[in-house]
Design a binder for these strands. Structure first.
Lengths: 148, 148
DNA sequence: ATTGCTGCAAACCTTTTGCAAGAAT
DNA sequence: ATTCTTGCAAAAGGTTTGCAGCAAT
């Protein structure tokens, strides 16, 4: 739930422990996630996986990600209308999504704590801290816009 | 940008002023938005519009909403993976989306001001106040979950 | 008479699903 | 041997687009 240091073997063990089987695709996928530690779409993850397992299909990546998500190893966020991004579960954090360049910026969830509390107190609403996403424009894009 | 009292005729005038033409579908759509003042999907808006203009198609509703959005009269938000919801631009506000029942709760944007400032100061990121959406579970759903 | 708008159908994208063959245990 | 998984292809949403005809101005 809050491992900052996921290791490939630990994840593969978790898969086996829960009755899952470790396939070439899953191993490549897990390594991609551990290596990049980035927010990746299924499309880009599939490309990376295919370097090692050329036959891998997006649908398998979807299914594998779902399995990892059920194990609490992976989380995903929907940012705008675009494809969802997946990454290793880690310290809970929020996302800033630039609607201009698509970049994702991670921000500590501490930033959101005041809101999480307010919203719980005033609206009886439990915020899902894993899916905090806010859209806007990053500094780079703001500046390029002004110079155009 | 912050009209709390959009009137149908004002909106139709705005359409004409900018070179647009007022059609039966547009009029029905505008009335639906003004009447319900709710957050509606294209699907539900189309149903309402079709009460008056039976031939109206979703694609036209999409195009009309885009036009209204360009005029600053309508805004939309993406909440999760589901269909986007549209509503009249009004006092800027955030959305709480219940991932269990799909309900949308409006919250005053004042709640988000601290974050908007922090994020601008620390991450050089301009939050789009029109698209603030936070997912979680509303009180009703939390309680039904506990009773099941 | 312009030329913006429409409905329809088809295209698009992301994601999900059915299925028979293949592989990890 | 089991039974999980896979790739493929097709389906399923939500949204966009091309087009020829229609209609608001």
């Amino acid at each position: 739930m809050n491992e900052t240091t996921w290791r490939v073997d630990d994840i593969l063990d978790a898969i086996r422990t829960t009755g899952g089987r470790v396939t070439a695709t899953k191993r490549a996928l897990v390594e991609a996630l551990v290596d990049t530690r980035d927010h990746l779409t299924v499309e880009s993850l599939t490309s990376v996986v295919q370097l090692r397992a050329p036959e891998a299909s997006p649908s398998t990546v979807y299914r594998n990600l779902e399995e990892l998500e059920n194990l609490g190893i992976v989380v995903h966020s929907h940012l705008g209308r675009a494809a969802a991004v997946y990454h290793l579960a880690g310290p809970v954090h929020g996302h800033l999504l630039c609607s201009s360049c698509g970049r994702t910026i991670e921000v500590p969830s501490a930033l959101f704590e005041p809101i999480v509390h307010e919203v719980r107190a005033q609206y009886d609403f439990d915020v899902d801290r894993h899916h905090l996403a806010i859209s806007g424009v990053c500094g780079d894009c703001r500046r390029s816009a002004h110079n155009s």
